[in-house]
Amino acid sequence: MSACPFCKTAMQLTPSGELPMETCTACGAVWFEGEALTKVMGGSISDSLLRRAKNESGQCKGCRAGLDFVTHCSVCGTRAPTCPRCGHAPLPVVEALGVPMEVCSGCAGVALDAGELEQLQTAVEAHRNEPLDARAKVRIEGKPHCVGCRRNLQLKHGFVFNEQLFCGSCAPRESTPYSERFSHNDIPLTFTCKRGGEHFNFDGYIGAGLKWLLHRMFQG
């Protein structure tokens, strides 16, 4: 049996034939991974969830303070949510379909508080065919450039971390490759063009070709 990610109490396996997961007898939390994760959320959503977890921070179960690279909360001393398989702490918090959960991308496992599994299953049934946007958020002003070395770069070669754009040489280990696949759920990019003291701001992805043309004109 594994230790609960939240309170360290020994968890119990579900009876044979049911959804393969472990349940904490003390706090009611559940842990499931691999095949169970796919059964609960669907393949595309679970894959996106694991990718997103690489860029998110954890959260203290005692005082809700943010946690980064620590095993215990510096505010209240509560033990950080920990993966029962590999011991990684803190587990990052990712919200999917309106339900927050602790995720270990290395072990492909998810921890949920008591009652959240039912919420998640209900949400999945309503949105099973809607892919979860796995890309990190980024805001770009002016010509795309690396915030580390300041060199200009093409977006397709960029990496995103903490809503900032990096080149391959400066990108932190936890960064995510930038994706140019647009959808209605995307966070808008802002390009600011200047000419003769005037500022022209264009938000969103609609009219991307026009923005590119105007940018070339203003640079001339």
Rank of each mutant, 00 (worst) to 15 (best):
V124Q: 05
E141G: 12
M41T: 03
G115F: 13
A53K: 00
E22S: 13
F161M: 05
Q121S: 10
V99K: 06
E118F: 12
L50S: 00
S183I: 02
C24A: 02
C4R: 00
S175P: 14
C24R: 00
A126M: 11
E22W: 10
E102G: 05
A126D: 10
N129F: 11
T122Q: 13
L214P: 00
P20R: 08
T9F: 04
M217R: 10
Q164I: 03
E102Y: 14
V99A: 05
S46M: 03
H72I: 07
P131E: 08
C4V: 05
D68E: 13
T71S: 14
Q119I: 06
H215Q: 13
F218K: 05
V110N: 00
C60H: 07
G197K: 06
G17N: 11
V40D: 01
E56L: 12
G62C: 13
P177S: 04
F32C: 02
S175E: 02
V94Y: 04
C149D: 08
K54G: 02
E174Y: 09
V160Q: 02
N129W: 07
S48M: 08
R150G: 01
G158I: 01
R139H: 14
C104I: 05
C73M: 10
P92D: 01
E95T: 15
P188L: 07
V99N: 02
R173G: 01
F159P: 00
E198T: 10
H72V: 11
F69R: 08
D113V: 07
P177F: 07
A29K: 04
D133R: 15
R128L: 11
K211M: 15
V110M: 01
E180K: 06
G207H: 11
P144A: 04
R85A: 13
Q59W: 06
L91N: 00
E130L: 15
Q119F: 14
A136H: 04
R150C: 10
G158C: 04
A134T: 04
P188K: 04
L67V: 09
G98M: 09
F191L: 12
R150D: 03
C24H: 00
V70G: 06
R64Y: 14
T122W: 05
L214F: 15
T71R: 14
G115W: 11
E163A: 15
R64H: 15
C146H: 00
P84H: 01
R135T: 13
G106I: 07
P177C: 03
R173V: 07
Q121E: 15
N129R: 13
Q12G: 06
H184E: 08
H184Y: 11
R135E: 12
K137H: 14
A108G: 10
C63T: 09
V70K: 02
E95M: 09
R64I: 04
C76W: 10
T192A: 14
G17S: 11
E174T: 12
G109K: 08
C60R: 07
P84M: 00
A134V: 06
T122Y: 04
V99R: 04
G220I: 03
P5Q: 04
A126E: 13
V160L: 09
E102M: 03
E116M: 12
L210C: 10
R195L: 09
H199K: 11
D133K: 15
Q119L: 15
H145G: 01
T14G: 03
F182P: 01
P20M: 08
R195I: 04
W31M: 05
K137M: 11
G109S: 15
A10T: 13
K54A: 10
Q59L: 12
Q119V: 08
H199S: 14
A29F: 06
